[in-house]
Amino acid sequence: MTAAAQPAASVDTGAPGDAALLRVDRPEPGVLLVTLDAPERRNSLSRRMMAALAEAISSASADRDVAAIVLAAAGPAFSAGHDLKELSAHRADADGGRAFYEDTMRACARLMQDIVASPKPVIAAVQGIATAAGCQLVATCDLAVAASSATFATPGVNIGLFCSTPMVALSRNVPRKQAMEMLLLGEAMSAGDAARYGLVNRVVPPERVLDEALAMARIVAAKSRTTVSIGKHAFYRQIEQPLAAAYDDAAAVMVENMMARDAAEGICAFLEKRPPNWNET
């Protein structure tokens, strides 16, 4: 732990006495490390886990001291997706589980959209398997680093449950044919193929995954937070628009960005050949 680092905190929204599901650390200025910490359940996205993660993302998004978020996991799995035991248990409900399933899928959709909407870039550090909604979580993050031994899959079709919600994030990250191959065959994709098709940015030896993700976060944290926030929101907005509308939107964003204090400072610093003094520091 560096001199600027702060002790780990736990995040849990379960009943009193339940084990915490997340660890939250501040390993260095501007960087928040959120670790899924339920390795015995393969860090499955249970209702409690999703609530804890949503709380952590919300808090980080509002925290002026956070510039970038690294999302990691304990144990051999990054996340095995939804908790199938939890889902199956609710088949005994009076409605066969429909209300619970609807609430669960809505909670998952909100979590993924919260990550995209956060003004802080979220970087996944994937040390093990990421399957179904776990693969969706990786695809939803802004950047991702994977261990060379990591694998990715949307295997729901193998158990009669097509990965329809993971499909949303997956199909927005990898080419159509590769997305359909993962969804229809349910086979695992290697970390190398995941990088080749755009699901992750970098593949490194397993012992370097977290360090690499933290290094990327450190680079982001050195930028203007105002500019990064403007750019992240503009990216996701324009990518869903037709070409002409995207250019209109992006042009308007550029104008507003040019009017910001950090743009004036950054350009001036570049011309004067000195480091910029961002508004946040």
Rank of each mutant, 00 (worst) to 15 (best):
P39Q: 02
A250F: 14
A125F: 00
Q127Y: 00
E181D: 14
S88T: 13
A133H: 14
A132I: 02
V122C: 14
V228W: 05
A153S: 13
N158L: 15
A92L: 13
P121V: 02
L210Y: 00
A153R: 02
A117D: 11
H233F: 09
T281W: 08
A260F: 04
T104Q: 12
A19W: 03
A169G: 03
A54P: 14
Y101Q: 10
L36V: 07
N43E: 03
T2L: 14
G192P: 06
P39G: 08
E86M: 09
E207I: 07
S61F: 01
S46W: 04
Q241T: 03
S118M: 13
T226Q: 13
A251C: 05
A153V: 08
T227V: 10
I115V: 15
R23D: 13
A74V: 07
F100W: 11
K232F: 03
E55D: 15
A109T: 11
T131F: 08
A62I: 01
Q113D: 14
A132Q: 01
N201A: 05
C163S: 15
K120A: 09
E240Q: 15
V116A: 02
S224R: 02
A20Q: 03
I219T: 11
A109P: 08
C268W: 07
S164N: 07
S88I: 05
A252D: 08
A9Y: 09
D262M: 01
V220W: 01
H233D: 01
K223W: 06
V11N: 03
L71K: 04
I57G: 03
P242W: 03
V255H: 12
A269I: 12
T151K: 02
E181C: 06
G75R: 07
K85W: 00
P275K: 10
A179G: 06
V209E: 00
V200S: 01
E102R: 13
C268R: 13
A244C: 04
Q127D: 01
A109R: 10
R218S: 11
M259N: 11
Q178S: 14
R23H: 07
K223E: 10
A147E: 00
L199C: 05
M258E: 10
Y101S: 08
N277G: 08
E240M: 15
D18M: 12
S148G: 14
S190A: 03
K120M: 06
S148D: 15
I123F: 01
P29N: 10
A92H: 05
L271F: 04
M167H: 07
M49G: 05
N279F: 12
S61T: 13
A3Q: 08
V255D: 08
M254Q: 12
A146G: 03
Q178K: 10
M189A: 13
F152M: 11
A260G: 11
M50Q: 09
V168Q: 13
D114C: 06
K120R: 14
A94Y: 02
L214G: 00
P119A: 11
S149D: 07
G192R: 05
A9W: 04
A263D: 03
A147M: 00
I219L: 09
T281F: 12
L111A: 07
